[in-house]
């Protein structure tokens, strides 16, 4: 099959970027979207041009490194998948596919389709852990955790940190990302002792990084590859309120 890629090219963070068009043929429907870009890059090399920079690592939807805006959707036309899980069979022969980097003030462009998501790491740094040192743990079964609670914690913990929530949100809010981590830890008994401080510190960092407000459009939960529910944000808000009052 044959498609036209319209891809954002930008050499440096401060450089002015622009869309560039590329006709690509010899594609097959079994190819993943990223394999189609790989294929394009090989052609570019042979033509002596610089390759398009985009990110990926695991290519199986778990590391969260891939992620671009494809035809007006984060990670492409399907809900709840990553870019690396998108296949060319989702497009038609002759399609034009517009590819843009994540757009958010807190995710500055590094090059072409690559953005800097280290703001997420800095939110994690502010308390997404249980401050117990290696070697101090009690016997694992000493604290019982009901299946329902463990399952809910796992639902929230499934976040892969790809940034699609921020990318798709009209406000570039990082609420879903932050809420998922807070709820994972704060709902477990192990996370209780530091629960209030965790909420306050992590959300304060979210504010400092320049993310927007959550206005519950719900776009994030549709695009989230891990299917994190937006109810998590409401839950974080409750925890925030409690922490502001009690913490």
């Amino acid at each position: 099959m044959k498609v036209t890629f319209k891809i954002w090219r930008q050499d440096k963070p401060q450089a002015k970027g622009a869309f560039k068009e590329y006709q690509v043929d010899e594609l097959t429907e079994d190819m993943s979207f990223l394999e189609a870009l790989d294929h394009l890059n090989e052609r570019l090399v042979l033509r002596g041009e610089k390759v398009i920079a985009y990110e990926y690592d695991c290519r199986e939807g778990i590391c969260g490194q891939c992620g671009v805006f494809i035809n007006g959707r984060a990670h492409g036309p399907h809900p709840n998948i990553t870019t690396c899980q998108l296949h060319m069979r989702s497009f038609k022969d002759g399609d034009t596919i517009v590819v843009e980097p994540w757009r958010a003030n807190a995710f500055p462009i590094v090059k072409d389709l690559i953005v800097d998501r280290s703001a997420f790491d800095r939110i994690i740094e502010q308390g997404a852990y249980i401050s117990a040192k290696t070697g101090t743990a009690p016997e694992a079964n000493a604290i019982l955790i009901g299946k329902a609670i463990a399952d809910r914690a796992m639902d929230a913990a499934a976040c892969i940190g790809c940034g699609a929530c921020v990318a798709t949100c009209k406000n570039s809010s990082a609420a879903l990302f932050t809420a998922a981590k807070i709820n994972h830890l704060n709902s477990l008994p192990q996370g209780k002792p530091e629960a209030h401080q965790r909420v306050l510190d992590m959300t304060a960092q979210m504010e400092r990084e320049g993310f927007g407000h959550c206005s519950f459009t719900g776009a994030c939960e549709v695009e989230c590859p891990a299917g994190i529910s937006i109810a998590n944000i409401a839950e974080m808000n409750a925890r925030q309120g409690k922490a502001q009052l009690l913490g």
Binding site: F69, R103, A104, A106, G210, G218, V222
Partner: peptide, 17 residues
């Protein structure tokens, strides 16, 4: 919110989500 998203997408199908 505007500051948080200074550049908007060339194509954005918000109706889908």
């Amino acid at each position: 919110n505007r500051k948080a998203k200074p550049v908007s997408y060339a194509v954005n199908h918000t109706e889908a989500n």
